[in-house]
Simulated scan of single mutants.
Amino acid sequence: MNQPVFATWNDPDAKPLIQFRNVTKRFGDFTAIDDLTQDIFEKEFFALLGPSGCGKTTMMRMLAGFDMPSEGQIFIAGQDMARIPPNKRAVNMMFQSYALFPHLSVWDNIAFGLKREGKDKEAINARVEEMLRLTRLSKFAKRKPHQISGGQRQRVALARSLAKAPKLLLLDEPLGALDKKLRQDTQFELMDIQEKTGTTFVIVTHDQEEAMTVASRVAVMDEGRIIQVATPAQIYEAPNSVYVADFIGDVNIISGRAKPTGEKVAIQWAEGQPDILGTTTTKFDAGQEIHFAIRPEKVAISTEEPLDAANKLQGKVLDIAYLGNISTYHVELPTGHVIKAQTANTRRLSRRQITWEDPVWISFTDTAGVLLER
C-alpha cells in the first residue's frame, strides 16, 4: 500500500488544493452528487472508489470543468471554479480510452499540448524527452500507437497528460483496459511517477485492490455520498460501516444485539450459540442492533477444540477455495451462517488435514473484529 510519509490531511493549518463545499449535482430528477464536502491536498494520490453509478465520475467531470455543480462550490488552489472553462484550469484528465492520435508518433502525441500552447521548439524538445524518460518510452518515440502494447499506450497517455505540468491530474479508470498482471505492474509505475512529479493525482476506480494499492487516501462512495475517507490501512482495519467493510476485501458479518460488559461487548446473535465477544471504544446500549465484521485471515480453523480462545464456534467445512498461497474454508455453523476462515498454505497439498464435510472449530480473539452500529 502506498502509505505516504506525509499526512497533510491531519495538519489543521494545511491548505487543501481541492475543496468541494456542499456540492450537489442533479441530472433532471436524478441526484448524482448529494451535498458533498471534501478536501484533497497537494501531492496526494486520492482514490474515488465505489460501484457504478455512485457519482465518482461526476465528481471528476466537475473538477475538470465538463459539468457544473447544481449547488455548492468547487475551489482549486483557493480559486472558485464556477466560471473557469476546462482549458483554463491547471487540470489535465486522462481517459480510460487513452484517446491517442493514431497518425502521430509517440513523440508527437506527447508534444501535442505543448505545441498548441505555442511553446518554443527547444522547450518542447526538452519537456518531451523528460516525459519519455520518466515513462520509460525513449526507445519507442518514433513508433505509432498501434505499434506498441496496451501498457505502453497507457504510459504515452500519462506522459501527454503530465507534459503540461498540471497541478492536478484526473485519471478515469486508467488501467481498466489492461490485463491483471500488467495492471499490477502499472499501478506501481503510476505511484512512482506521481511521487517523482509531485503532481496531485485523483483516480476514479471501481477496483478496490487498485485503490488500496495506489492511494494515499481512499474515499468510498455510495449513491452520491462519501461514506468514509481514510488511508487504505484504516479503511481495511477500521471500516466505519457494514457497507465499507463489505466493499473492501473479504469479510464475515454477524448481526445481533449488544450486551455491554465493561470495555467489552457481548453479541447475542443466535439461539443456542455462545455470545461473540468484541472490544470497542464505541458505546453500545443493551439490546442495540450491532454488527460484528471480521476478516477471514483473522479466523483460525482447527480440528481440535481450541482451549483458550475468546470466541470459538463449531461447524463443518462446506467448501474450500484453493488460491495457491492461501486457502479459504467456508464453514457452515449449525445456525446456517457460513463463516470464511483463511490459512496460508505453507505445506504441500498432500500434507493438509482438513477437507470437505469435516467437523471443525473456528476461533478468533475479541480484538480481531470490528463492532459497527450501521
Rank of each mutant, 00 (worst) to 15 (best):
residue 282 T to C: 08
residue 268 Q to A: 08
residue 282 T to I: 07
residue 287 G to P: 13
residue 266 A to L: 13
residue 256 G to R: 02
residue 239 P to T: 12
residue 261 T to M: 07
residue 274 P to E: 04
residue 249 G to L: 10
residue 289 E to T: 13
residue 291 H to E: 04
residue 289 E to D: 12
residue 256 G to I: 01
residue 259 K to R: 11
residue 280 T to L: 05
residue 281 T to D: 15
residue 235 I to T: 15
residue 240 N to K: 15
residue 279 T to M: 11
residue 289 E to K: 13
residue 264 K to Q: 11
residue 246 D to Q: 14
residue 290 I to H: 02
residue 289 E to G: 09
residue 257 R to I: 07
residue 268 Q to Y: 06
residue 240 N to F: 03
residue 285 D to M: 02
residue 286 A to I: 00
residue 291 H to F: 14
residue 248 I to G: 06
residue 238 A to S: 15
residue 246 D to A: 12
residue 289 E to N: 14
residue 254 I to L: 05
residue 245 A to V: 10
residue 249 G to N: 09
residue 272 G to S: 07
residue 281 T to C: 05
residue 254 I to D: 02
residue 245 A to H: 07
residue 244 V to A: 05
residue 239 P to Y: 13
residue 246 D to S: 14
residue 267 I to R: 01
residue 258 A to Q: 02
residue 244 V to I: 10
residue 285 D to V: 10
residue 285 D to Q: 12
residue 286 A to V: 01
residue 281 T to M: 10
residue 285 D to I: 00
residue 243 Y to Q: 11
residue 238 A to P: 14
residue 267 I to A: 02
residue 288 Q to M: 02
residue 290 I to L: 12
residue 254 I to M: 09
residue 264 K to S: 09
residue 240 N to D: 11
residue 281 T to P: 00
residue 259 K to G: 03
residue 255 S to Q: 05
residue 276 I to K: 03
residue 289 E to I: 06
residue 258 A to H: 01
residue 277 L to N: 07
residue 288 Q to V: 00
residue 247 F to E: 06
residue 260 P to E: 04
residue 278 G to N: 04
residue 269 W to L: 08
